[in-house]
Design a protein around this nucleic acid. Structure first.
Length: 552
RNA sequence: GUGCCCGUAGCUCAAUGGAUAGAGCAUCAGCCUUCUAAGCUGAGGGUUACUGGUUCGAGUCCAGUCGGGCGCACCA
């Protein structure tokens, strides 16, 4: 719809003799009485033209030439807004496009021919997924869906490390629990993984091997078993939320030498070194970020000889460039906020186009149980496990609740609310609208034989002109722009809000306009409007990863 | 101490620099002989934490103050 207005306004400014560098902005006024669309361009340019903005707006209006029967009224309001009112006929005629495009309605071509990678979850296999990871997982998955809707070829990637110190500790933790199973009395260190799942893995190993591993001091079998079991549990949890990655990138591959005997990590050191951003002192190898105005240099290779996480991180991002991605989205939690600036700086120094990298950081999650707020990070035991939350409220509520707040807001997950099978629960409000339409169409088929797939009289939509009908139709036309906005902001929350308002408009239409009891043509027209609404709800639900129940 | 995020109705949250700051929940008042009342209509509720600044115009941008969260390792 925005594409519809922009050229007309550009032409009008040109033929009215107004020249400006300022971008033309078209917005939807919050209040319908200010029109369906509005532009503030007259106010923006008034100053540089030394003109009264209202007068200028009046002069521009005669130059605004729209196709016939599209814009019903144009007027100047407020301090110089130009407000546009679409004709109901135009709106309802446009709704036909929803029916024609079906599952593809709303998709755009902005990413056509482009490759994108979305990196999300990326938890190391040291334990089951927590609720906090869940938020990032759903956010990343929705962003990937949005990219696909814009035509990008999307790779969903999970970056992990199964070699570092944390995995070492994991292996030891399992071994100690295993020794307990063998009957030894162990003092379990506080630095090790305390979770009950460690004990379960140890018990499983004991069941397989009995005490045969008791004398051996090697950790590998403990590490490997733990990794396998934990990784498969992570993937199972993600699958419950319909999150599936295409690619699991093991950090360790960045350590292994290529056929010239040089690892990806080493290539980063060499490249940065040739730019004079590397120095060795205090037994370590440093990235000279003080040269960029930072307070301290950052360690790339520890005095132990092992790389710190920063080095493979840089090398990893280089692989994304080498793999030809046009767009790289990283999703992670607020605790990793300091992780990316150094990586970006290093990539810039090495000449990579860092504009292609987008970062989506989500704030933390707290849960409210029985009206009491619990902070996840301080919580021990099971309550912060993502699996338990899914058990409790189901996958649809889990997904929707994670994205119904802006990613920059701390999320307060009200478990009681998410469980409620009632109107207080926003999940049900949305899904109910869909189920209600399905039910309506079932009855329509039975009673009148109306079948949207075979009925071709979509032109009848133009018979509809009551406010409830036109507003619903207008909202349906908004959907493609909503996808673009959500993607630009990396904020699926916008989609949730949009779908909520769409559901609300449908309920109002349903309430005010009798459908099956209307005379034949009107009845068909209203059924088509309902079908179009169901289509947009479905398409939107698919992007959010929420199911579209046919009955409730 | 310092970097990032946040502070908006009783609660949870919206508001690409725009017009009278909006939803949901909760509260109150209405609407089912009629296609799902898991719905709809209406009412009340605000010094947008505070103080300055920028401009035609600030919840939004800038500076400072206060409050909350997350980081600030040769952990990832």
């Amino acid at each position: 719809m925005l594409d519809f207005f922009l050229p007309v306004i550009q032409n009008a400014l040109h033929s009215a003799g107004v020249t400006t560098e300022k971008p033309i902005r078209i917005e939807q006024p919050s209040d319908k009485k200010f029109g369906d669309f509005s532009t503030n361009i007259a106010m923006l340019v008034a100053k540089e033209c030394r003109r009264n903005p209202r007068e200028l707006a009046q002069e521009i209006i005669p130059h605004l030439v729209f196709p016939p029967d599209t814009v019903a009224k144009i007027e100047v309001a407020g301090g110089g807004f130009i407000n546009f009112y679409l004709s109901p006929l135009f709106i309802m005629r446009s709704v036909e496009q929803v029916l024609l495009d079906g599952d593809h309605y709303g998709k755009g071509g902005a990413g056509k021919g482009k490759k994108a990678v979305v990196e999300y979850v990326s938890a190391n296999p040291t334990g089951p997924l927590t609720i906090g990871r869940g938020r990032g997982g759903v956010l990343g998955d929705c962003i990937a869906n949005l990219l696909e809707a814009q035509g990008y070829e999307v790779t969903r990637e999970y970056y992990f490390n199964d070699a570092g110190r944390q995995m070492q500790i994991l292996g030891e933790s399992v071994r100690l629990r295993y020794l307990e199973c063998c009957g030894q009395n162990i003092e379990f260190p506080a630095t090790h993984y305390q979770g009950e799942y460690i004990r379960e893995i140890a018990e499983q190993m004991y069941a397989e091997h009995l005490a045969t591993l008791e004398e051996s001091s090697e950790l590998d079998s403990f590490k490997k078993s733990a990794e396998n079991i934990i990784f498969s549990s992570i993937r199972q949890t993600l699958e419950r939320l319909d999150i599936r990655h295409d690619s699991f990138f093991n950090e360790h591959t960045l350590y292994t030498p290529d056929n010239k005997g040089v690892s990806a990590n080493q290539r980063v050191i060499d490249a940065l070194s040739s730019k004079e951003f590397i120095a060795a002192y205090d037994g370590a190898v440093w990235f000279l970020t003080t040269r960029l105005g930072q307070e301290k240099d950052k360690v790339l290779i520890k005095s132990s000889g092992e790389p710190s996480y920063r080095l493979p991180d840089i090398a990893y991002h280089i692989t994304k460039f080498e793999r030809g991605f046009d767009l790289m989205v990283n999703v992670f939690g607020a605790d990793h906020i300091d992780e990316y600036p150094d990586v970006i700086e290093a990539l810039k120094i090495l000449g990579y186009d860092t504009e292609r990298i987008k970062i989506a950081i989500n704030q933390f999650v707290t849960t409210t149980v029985d009206g009491q707020t619990l902070k996840m990070s301080t919580r021990k035991g099971n309550a912060d496990l993502l699996d338990d939350l899914i058990d409790d409220v189901g996958p649809d509520a889990t997904r929707l609740f994670f994205i119904m707040r802006g990613k920059d807001s701390h999320l307060n997950f009200d478990v009681e609310l998410a469980k409620k099978q009632s109107k207080e629960n926003p999940v049900f409000y949305l899904q109910y609208a869909h189920a209600r339409i399905c039910s309506l169409l079932r009855i329509a088929l039975e009673e009148t034989g109306f079948d949207p797939s075979s009925c071709t009289e979509t032109r009848l939509l133009t018979l509809l002109n009551s406010p409830a009908e036109v507003q619903l139709g207008f909202a349906l036309l908004d959907y493609p722009d909503m996808i673009k906005t959500s993607l630009r902001l990396l904020e699926p929350q916008k989609m949730v809000e949009y779908l909520h308002s769409l559901a609300e408009l449908f309920h109002r239409f349903y309430q005010e306009c009798p459908i099956l009891k209307a005379k034949s043509d009107i009845c068909k027209a209203r059924l088509f409007l309902s079908v179009a609404t169901r289509q947009v709800l479905r398409n939107g639900f698919r992007i959010l990863g929420v199911s579209a129940p046919e009955s409730m």
